[in-house]
Design a protein around this nucleic acid. Structure first.
Lengths: 335, 335
DNA sequence: TGTCTCATCGTGATCGATCACCGGGCCAGC
DNA sequence: GCTGGCCCGGTGATCGATCACGATGAGACA
């Protein structure tokens, strides 16, 4: 049996309420008694039972995170950054996976977190699983991408501007003189994949070129990028490719290399995420670096503000991404 | 205010205890009343308060996981697999990060999980932070690597045999005719890095060759593998390198390529983990595939058995890893 | 008819903390 | 000398459920 406040009180020869005052740092306890209680706490290795506390208060100081459960660089980096951000503000981290949004619906994940007792929820990688993003949920929620609608609580969106970032990546290729840019998109049920495709289209439209057909949709893995690029490699007109993430770009590099198309002399490739590996590929990959740490910090800021009823900070601050130009992009080859 | 059992009882015209019986599927409730209670539960959208339940039972059906908080492939894949395994057996997932084992000690992470209320703990990537792996902890713990000692509860170890796996990787290179094999180790405070180094030494010893000096210790990142390999590339005698993970191997590939040493014609490289990218590098990387899914499943199995006081399954089953031979390894070049 | 079992349902205590409220001791001010 | 405010400490209710135990009523059997 773990020690309780009553045990400590008995040991220190005071009432249980006095122990409570000392533990919570309230005033109106003499220095002498405070010291006696502290000693008893140390001697008995007492730790307050947060379950009891949460039952009474109705708050748990715990935030739930819904993730798809895949181990890709972006999502996991975000997850770890969220953990750190929560730790800084004294919130615990509960994780609920959805196994690629299929086996288990988002709604089920929300319900399981709610049952566990969380004060707020972060929807880390919103995907479109067919049903609208509306949940029976009485705690606030922050979505890292697509707006959600809650019955009974407020929600907010925190994210980088994926459309603008993808547009910048595409424009970089157009500026190098490429007539057009092919795109290897991510899974079409990911909102972030849709954003990147939209940015690509926007850049092409702004340049006055008709968007070419999409390459085969990938699933973020190198294998899918490889498959998509192998078909692109057969087309000699393809000189520039923008992949929706670095992993797929890596697969694309491999496909072009195998097909004898040199990168960047024959084909330019741009990725997205700036994984640690990007700078060490052959050739080093031009990509877009997202600031996951800031996204996570802001998400937790906004969510805790909503939880604690404080005035919510601005929802859409400038979360700057950065185009990192390396050696996988070059001017359009002259034919 | 969320609805409570008392609300349901009032609505159904029964006592609160009867509602409890229905919710918990106990017997001795007439079909008619059971139906009435079920209807009231639906009408009021009642969900039992797990916090209150946990307070009374002393169990939370929650497992805490301690991770270093880095986004590398191995650890995060393991984390996601753990989440799935827990979900299958109906346990919630609480995460505590240690920020590379420095800013926050393992002991602090254990304490924070204990305060939060977990029935057991998984130590995902045990590292040596100077102090011995002994914790004040009254719930069982499973370590994914190095044995730990607890005051007040049992512990177990579940992991693949990193020594044997590393030995197999090294032997593969020796079998190809390489006189010796250089090793790029992981951070020396990681027990898994130590295991891999030990396996490398064992293979060399078994072949009767004196272990050459270690390359500069890496930190699992491509950048560190690149730095270590750049120095190895200057030595023409180096014909085979075993890196402690795929990311560092990737950096090494880049370093050799830059130095004009062809892989695998001049230098063979082996990695560890079989990341999704490994098969799509140039050249495709020979590496060791670990079965993270099985490790996670067994870890949760063992831990829940300890939590629930059931007979614990065998601790050290055969968790097979597999050497995946690709194109980054070749016979020793003739000089 | 009396009693005894068994199914059914309710009562009161309890988990470990917080919170509202109350009781005295002490000192100052009128 | 009495009141009132400041300090310090204690009592009982409460959060939302579970648990041990008790009460009720119906049917079985002697």
């Amino acid at each position: 049996m773990p020690t309780t406040m009553t045990d400590v009180a008995r040991a220190a020869g005071v009432s249980q309420k006095t122990v409570s005052r000392v533990v919570n740092g309230e005033q109106y306890v003499s220095a002498e008694i405070r010291e006696r209680v502290h000693r008893a706490i140390r001697d008995l290795d007492f730790r307050p039972n947060n379950t009891a506390r949460a039952l009474l208060r109705g708050k748990h100081r715990r935030i739930g995170v819904i993730s798809l459960g895949s181990a890709h660089y972006g999502p996991t980096t975000l997850l770890m950054a969220l953990e750190r951000a929560m730790q800084r503000v004294g919130y615990a981290f509960a994780l609920a996976g959805t196994r690629d949004g299929r086996d288990r619906s988002l709604a089920a994940a929300v319900a399981s977190l709610l049952a566990e007792g969380v004060d707020g929820i972060v929807l880390s990688e919103p995907v479109d699983d067919g049903s609208p993003l509306r949940f029976r949920c009485d705690v606030p929620m922050v979505s890292l991408g697509e707006p959600v609608e809650l019955s009974g609580a407020a929600s907010a969106v925190v994210s980088a501007d994926g459309v603008a970032d993808a547009r910048a990546a595409t424009e970089h290729l157009l500026t190098l003189g490429h007539r057009t840019v092919r795109h290897i998109p991510g899974p079409d049920n990911w909102f972030s994949a849709r954003d990147r495709e939209r940015g690509w289209r926007a850049a092409l439209a702004a340049a006055g070129v008709v968007a070419p057909p999409l390459a085969a949709a990938g699933d973020w893995t190198p294998a899918s990028g490889y498959r998509a690029a192998r078909r692109l490699a057969r087309d000699p007109d393809v000189t520039a490719v923008f992949a929706a993430n670095d992993e797929m770009a890596l697969g694309a590099l491999r496909a072009f290399t195998e097909a004898g198309r040199r990168v960047p002399q024959d084909v330019s490739v741009v990725g997205f995420d700036d994984t640690p590996a990007a700078a060490y590929l052959t050739p080093p990959l031009t990509t877009v670096r997202q600031d996951f740490e800031t996204v996570a910090t802001r998400a937790v800021e906004v969510l805790t503000a909503m939880i604690e009823g404080k005035p919510h900070p601005a929802e859409h601050p400038e979360l700057a991404s950065e185009l990192v130009v390396r050696e996988s992009t070059a001017p359009r080859p002259r034919t």
